[in-house]
Design a protein around this nucleic acid. Structure first.
Lengths: 130, 130
DNA sequence: CGGAATCCCTAACGATACTG
DNA sequence: CAGTATCGTTAGGGATTCCG
């Protein structure tokens, strides 16, 4: 299987690092980044308030922080329109768009295995051996 | 592209949820879980101390917490051997193994795009417009 | 509108013991 | 060996207010 080969190979060529995917995980899967990228991807270019409305329970402060981080990492593009009132638009960059297959893969795994996780949790919690 | 289609479809069928992959992210990409799963996958079944040695700078307390969580989610299997001194072995479960292609996909994206992120960061940090 | 500034608070992590 | 117990710390997030 290609997947296994790639995984093993990466680890083999990087003996120093316990987990070669750690950097990517920090970039793509740190808190709030997934909903933000997802929203930008599915609804296209949009303004700050639209993002805030669509992403449940996120505060403007945290939204700003994460947007800045994603912009710095090159995953999204921020466009400032010097008008009154000011208008700012965010959109996914080309680099951000390259994550689409990965996210699709994730959604696929979720659809196939999430209930299995749920069952495992029930088993664990109801097992009297604990 | 199949990736785009799946992504969009999942979001469309789940209007309530801002991000359909959020649950999986919590399970698979919460702190320390990636290095643990990676180590168990590449080195096979191993004991507590081996894991602790291989995963840089993790404390026994945190390692225990994460191992319990992964066991509860069904991603790893814990085997207790009642001997003196006690021996406990951890290994990836079938469910955990099903993540292999996903991790490979992640490693692939990393190899292809991580330097691009690095460049974006440099550009962002050195841009005098900020 | 799109944030920045401030204050607060707690969940999580780290370090250091100790035990069956 | 494989953890638990206890304590201390801190980074991250929430709530609120204010500004260009």
């Amino acid at each position: 299987m290609a997947g296994e080969a790639t995984w093993a190979a990466s680890a083999a060529t990087d003996p120093e690092l316990a987990c070669p995917v750690a950097p990517v995980v920090d970039i793509v899967f740190s808190r709030w980044t997934t909903p933000i990228l997802w929203t930008l991807h599915t609804h296209g270019r949009q303004r700050f308030v639209e993002l805030q409305r669509r992403i449940d329970r996120i505060t403007p402060k945290v939204l700003t922080q994460r947007l800045r981080q994603l912009e710095r990492d090159g995953l999204i593009v921020r466009t400032y329109h010097p008008e009154v009132p000011p208008r700012v638009e965010y959109e996914i960059s080309e680099l951000g768009r390259s994550l689409a297959p990965l996210f699709a893969h994730l959604a696929e795994w979720s659809a196939e295995h999430l209930d299995e996780v749920e069952r495992a949790r029930n088993d664990y919690d109801t097992d009297p051996a604990r």
